[in-house]
Design a protein around this nucleic acid. Sequence first.
DNA 1: CTGTGTGAATTTTTTCACAGCT
DNA 2: AGCTGTGAAAAAATTCACACAG
Lengths: 231, 231
Amino acid sequence: MGAVRGQSPAEIPDVVVERLPHYLRALRALRDEGTEVVSSQELGEALSVTPAQIRKDLSYFGRFGKQGRGYSVPHLVLDLTRILGLERAWPVILIGAGRLGQAIVTYPGFTPEGFHIQAAFDTDEAVIGTHIADIEVRPVREVQKYVRQKGIEIAIVAVPGEQAQAVIDGLIRVGIRAIMNYAPSNPRVPNGVRVRTIDPVQALQTMTFHLTGQQHPEQQAAPKPASAGPR
Amino acid sequence: MGAVRGQSPAEIPDVVVERLPHYLRALRALRDEGTEVVSSQELGEALSVTPAQIRKDLSYFGRFGKQGRGYSVPHLVLDLTRILGLERAWPVILIGAGRLGQAIVTYPGFTPEGFHIQAAFDTDEAVIGTHIADIEVRPVREVQKYVRQKGIEIAIVAVPGEQAQAVIDGLIRVGIRAIMNYAPSNPRVPNGVRVRTIDPVQALQTMTFHLTGQQHPEQQAAPKPASAGPR
DNA sequence: CTGTGTGAATTTTTTCACAGCT
DNA sequence: AGCTGTGAAAAAATTCACACAG
């Protein structure tokens, strides 16, 4: 029966876990177009990942493939969904209801994936009490009560960089265990708490390095898309 | 499979380049508070990075420290700025002027870092001709001319996932060499083109894995910034 | 003394390659 | 046959530890 159990994630490299959503997305696309079975080879081509890596990654969690055949797409979708903890919906709170926070709340990508932004908090009197989409902006001092009451574990932080560390410290004190940080800062968190900082500027800055270093564009003509893309 | 040949900047690992903006941000903060000199030890504590890693990373680019003293903060800021290609401003175009694209244009973090969104493009007749902040939304068919004329190398893509690959293929054909992709997709690009996909949902999905796996939150008290320095 | 820069050692991650299941 | 799952090998990244410069 259940091949997949919640094993101690201590053993599983972070780098592996970070690839799973990637696989899941591709598998869902395959499923939606009716593909029943996929080999690590085929999946790897779709994702620009080596087949060996896919097999090795999956092997951390169990045996999902059928030798000689490949992986059942619908089954693997379910397995990865379960492994990632995506069978349930996750309530999320947002701290910082400024321009960026508002864009996050209205971003349509979270809800279909089960991430429901339930409440927003801010310190600015001007926005407290207003509504973004259909959620009300509350004063930050109510965070603790809210988190405890609703058992929230995930927070999205969209406050100015200087405030991020203080806000995050407060969230952790209140029981938050996973934080998506949109502030350009390097927050320190205790063990057991996960942070992911999303920083488009840093991403751009690594790209300018490459743009600057390469003197000659060299091959420039047609960029073979290598995909069976329709036009 | 294709190892990247050609005259890429030396043989500097990507993972090293990706840390440089991180260092730079911390160094600028130190500079702005008047710190003249910093050791790899101190910088490492500020960033939760080992001192050895900082020294090793920097050593790919030269010798910036003074033995017995540490690094001159202002000098290292300048050196990293130059290494990353941030002495100049970078014009950027945006493809996709929907809700997300509009948020990107109005995000105040790009301009101070020298990334200037110069133009936005969309296929939707309804938004073409409108203005976001002070830039006009143009029809995508004008991208090629614009990019060539202005010598743009960086694009931000904020279109629906299904369209991302096609849009990116087009951009590359037109000469774009660095792409920040906000679409939840896995674009394939030819050698010599860099893509960074920013995908908050994937980030959340790796966090739910950890939230699900750990049965017991284990009591973590105050978020002591204690550098979890092992040993 | 202090703290860099760097070969060497260690650890982590990726890839190989093949036994074995279907 | 075809393709997984996995030890073993290889490669990459990190950390150690120390000679040496200031």
